[in-house]
């Protein structure tokens, strides 16, 4: 998504900033309100991310493995919901959310940090030993992310395109269960990615509902179908059971819905007149 960001940056440079440039032309005017609302949504999530990460990293530093494990998945959800925006800062995205196979030396790589490095320690090594430095760095990164996002003017096509981006995320790394490979908490991320995509779609839906009734009916149906599958995997505490319990049939159903949502949501930008 860096591509969108830079392209938009170029456009903004050319026009003297998106607020007066890209946003001034019709039909972007209609986007002002949904964009403002989305910005609020993201701000709420980054605030929550800072709060939850503080509790999570405190537990890690206190050596409380069980507590840290129980906070891992719920803490990540606020990050996963806003990933299209969070990803704009690729340096932070790497240090917060990279996976071991992004590195040549995998888990042993000195650059492997963030949530998944801590996840590796907690689940694979069953200990918080040596994790304090990663905890400190994660918290600092998350606070930095919060500050940067608060100062950001949201590029419209990044927000609108974000719904599809979240589906691409699920299709590329979540369906296969690669994301949270040590904790098997992938379904939490799944759910958060869907929620983030649905939020964007819901905010924009009124702008297209009249002209694109077939489209919205299909997208609504696919979101509902995903919810229905995920509901089956809710745990008693409101979270999700292990990824391993996902049946092949349900994985296929999710995969088909995710790819179809990705296809359809990828047309949102065009439908709203954004190139």
């Amino acid at each position: 998504m860096v591509g969108h960001y830079l392209k938009t940056t170029a456009l903004a440079l050319a026009l003297g900033g998106w607020a007066t440039g890209a946003m001034a032309a019709d039909p972007s005017l209609d986007l002002v309100e949904p964009l403002a609302e989305y910005k609020l949504y993201v701000a709420e999530n980054t605030a929550k991310l800072v709060e939850d990460t503080t509790a999570f990293t405190d537990a890690v530093k206190a050596g409380d493995v069980e507590k840290a494990k129980s906070l891992f998945a719920p803490t990540r959800t606020s990050y996963e919901k806003i990933e299209p925006i969070a990803e704009l800062f690729s340096d932070l995205d790497v240090s917060i959310d990279a996976r071991a196979d992004d590195y040549e030396q995998a888990e042993q790589d000195p650059d492997f940090t963030g949530f998944h490095r801590i996840e590796y320690g907690l689940w694979e090594q069953g200990s918080t030993e040596g994790l304090a430095e990663y905890a400190d760095k994660l918290l600092a990164d998350v606070k930095e992310l919060d500050a940067r996002i608060n100062g950001l003017t949201f590029p419209p096509e990044v927000v609108v395109g974000g719904a599809a981006v979240l589906m691409e995320e699920v299709a590329a790394t979540k369906i296969s269960g690669e994301e949270d490979r040590y904790s098997r908490t992938d379904l939490w991320d799944f759910d958060a990615n869907f929620e983030g995509a649905e939020k964007i779609y819901e905010l924009l839906r009124p702008l297209i509902a009249d002209d694109e009734a077939d489209f919205t009916a299909k997208v609504d149906g696919n979101f509902a179908a995903v919810d229905e599958v995920l509901e089956k995997y809710r745990s008693a505490d409101g979270g999700f059971v292990s990824y391993e319990e996902l049946t092949d049939t349900d994985r296929n159903a999710l995969s088909a819905k995710v790819n179809t949502l990705a296809e359809d949501l990828a047309t949102l930008r065009g439908k709203l007149g954004l190139g």
Partner: peptide, 19 residues
């Protein structure tokens, strides 16, 4: 997830596009 390699390529492309 983005890798940093892609960022630099994209940046080069961008620089080229806008001269």
């Amino acid at each position: 997830m983005n890798d940093q390699g892609r960022l630099s390529t994209t940046r080069r492309t961008l620089l080229r596009q806008i001269g």
